[in-house]
């Protein structure tokens, strides 16, 4: 079994004993032992995934890392959040998914008009199964719980991921327009209702230089 651990807050160390993990292309910063890197096309969910990817412009190229030793992953000095899945589903912006255990299934979901309006647009990456996933955020993510009667509103540019049974809808709150001045012109906020956890990063995507 691949062992996920954090080396500081910005480096993911994965101990491999002959097994494999899937990681964002180019995110390896160092390794010890023997490793092979293989590019996977389409992120592991076949043709449909590739087509949707083409449509969305998502650049989630994924590589498979296999070997014996320790492999270190990092992405632009972003913070790494380990998420342990036990059968539930993680929804994450494609840019924020760094690494998943081989046993997890990843796919792209069409979230329609309820999707985030932050460039990644209408599609979100879905991670299902049991195992570890590593999610990046610019600055350590704040994990906010949503429950009945306690909805949460989030700046779409700060949204990273969520788990649980959540509904999200876009609101164009009055006055929000004036709040969002900082380029991009997304005059919307995302409202989450239901039961679950939302990962919010202490920054906004637009201002995060490059954004790959």
């Amino acid at each position: 079994m691949a062992q996920f651990r954090l080396q500081g807050s910005r480096v993911l160390a994965v101990d491999l004993a002959g097994d494999a993990v899937k990681a964002r292309n180019g995110s390896m910063v160092a390794y010890t032992g023997q490793m092979t890197f293989k590019k996977l096309s389409g992120g592991g969910d076949g043709l449909r995934g590739m087509v949707t990817r083409r449509l969305t412009g998502e650049q989630m190229t994924v590589m498979e890392v296999q070997g014996k030793g320790t492999c270190f992953f990092a992405a632009q000095a972003t913070e790494i959040n380990l998420v342990r899945l036990n059968g539930e589903t993680l929804f994450v912006e494609a840019d924020n998914l760094l690494c998943t255990e081989a046993g997890l299934r990843t796919g792209t979901t069409f979230t329609g008009l309820n999707g985030m309006a932050s460039g990644d647009g209408l599609f979100t990456t879905k991670v299902e199964g049991s195992g570890w996933a590593a999610v990046t955020s610019n600055g350590p993510a704040v994990i906010l719980r949503v429950s009945q009667g306690m909805p949460l509103r989030v700046d779409p540019g700060a949204y990273v991921a969520h788990t649980g049974n959540l509904n999200r809808s876009l609101k164009s709150g009055a006055g929000w327009t004036t709040l969002m001045g900082e380029g991009g012109g997304e005059a919307v906020q995302a409202e989450f209702t239901g039961e679950g956890l939302v990962y919010v990063q202490p920054s906004e995507k637009i201002t995060f230089g490059g954004d790959v």
Partner: peptide, 27 residues
């Protein structure tokens, strides 16, 4: 296999001997 993105893991620096290497948390 990695050529797709240009800067995948196509090149690596192999360090051997006795010492320490300092690596940053970013590419």
């Amino acid at each position: 296999d990695m050529i797709g993105r240009g800067s995948g893991e196509a090149f690596q620096l192999e360090l051997s001997g006795q010492g320490t290497v300092y690596v940053q948390a970013s590419e």
